[in-house]
Design a protein around this nucleic acid. Sequence first.
DNA 1: TTTTGAAGTGAGTAATCACTCGCTAATACA
DNA 2: TGTATTAGCGAGTGATTACTCACTTCAAAA
Lengths: 223, 223
Amino acid sequence: MDEQRFEDRLQAFIEEIKQEDQMTEKQRSILEAAIKLFASKGFHASSTSEIAREAGVAEGTIFRHYKTKKDILIAAVAPVIVKIAAPYILKDIRTITEARAEKSFADIVTELYRNRLSLLEANEKHFRILIQEAFFHEELRETLLQTVAKEGKQIIQRFVEQRIEAGELRPLPPEVLMRIVLSLLLGMVAFKYVVGKEEFASLPEEEQIDLTVDILMNGISQR
Amino acid sequence: MDEQRFEDRLQAFIEEIKQEDQMTEKQRSILEAAIKLFASKGFHASSTSEIAREAGVAEGTIFRHYKTKKDILIAAVAPVIVKIAAPYILKDIRTITEARAEKSFADIVTELYRNRLSLLEANEKHFRILIQEAFFHEELRETLLQTVAKEGKQIIQRFVEQRIEAGELRPLPPEVLMRIVLSLLLGMVAFKYVVGKEEFASLPEEEQIDLTVDILMNGISQR
DNA sequence: TTTTGAAGTGAGTAATCACTCGCTAATACA
DNA sequence: TGTATTAGCGAGTGATTACTCACTTCAAAA
């Protein structure tokens, strides 16, 4: 249906990204302008002429560096998947598997939340584009799942099972556990950016995280 | 910046919606086609000619009923806000406030999750459009928050405080509690539609909900 | 100094966009 | 039945779209 598979194109970009410092001044400004516009208006609502104007570049220059408009989108989104998401996920998994018994599950989750939140904050625009575009683009969704979810799933699953056997966690289905840990993380992010920074955030972020982890571990009911 | 305030236009549609059964056959098929396309491709990626083709209607007919393309979007999204979200929210609040002491907090949340999930399922496409468009459109986001969140906030807050005083819940900040209850709901929806129905959903939905509420109440740690 | 190739330009292109308008067909009301 | 009103049509509108191409600029190699 589509001209080319998303994965293939993404793979092609991985090489380029590794030497991304060789980018021209103009090329970088095109990408920056595109990210800014895509994040605030969406991909289809941003025209190439607008990107050119924002970047201070002739429209032709855009197509010297990016074959199509869609290639700009991929170039904007690929580093998030390739450089940020995947390695960090693997790092998370490593710290999880390495921390055999010394660290408590609560500490591990707290650390995970802290990392993720600062990561999301630093790359807010990129993630907006990613989430927004993943909404329609099934290819992207699959690539994301393939890269992010499935690789770590089994390792995390085994780790969780160990903690259950050790008596630290209740005997719950690992995928339900993962869903809830992720839901609480995404919920914090969503409330921060959708609901607004001031109105609902009465607590500092540090405490917000600690409380969330506490509730995750112990629940909300009084005993 | 925009031609007209979103709220005003939405207000104008409320009247029309109340007598929506007077819609022409063609008008209804235009709206259906638009919802289908907006949900799958997004607003800007769907052209009016495409909508006309999908609806089996001349392009001119679209503009007989909807002044602009954006009006179709509002007509598609307005009923979700006006008819579905707001009244149900109020109904939720009523059941919450009415259930003084008979029902446990867990039962109330379970019921809430069941209602919400079936509601989201029944109006999946509408909500896709709503969420997707709320991403860029600050006006819509504010309207949504005004209609949905703030009205109930104080009532729920007072209710939660009562339950805390009664010793049923731990003394937690009400907004954190609300955030977590909502996060778990949204997490279930997201996992259902983003991750896919088969792969991660090893449990039937009924059990999925019960387990989630159980974890919300009691946490994941073994005692 | 000459050659070469990449970076950058901006006018130009066909296609498509949202939307209009003059028209006919159908329906409602007198 | 005659008349007014609305629904529906589709060719046509100017504007905008993603993208092309012949051209200039410029730095590094030969």
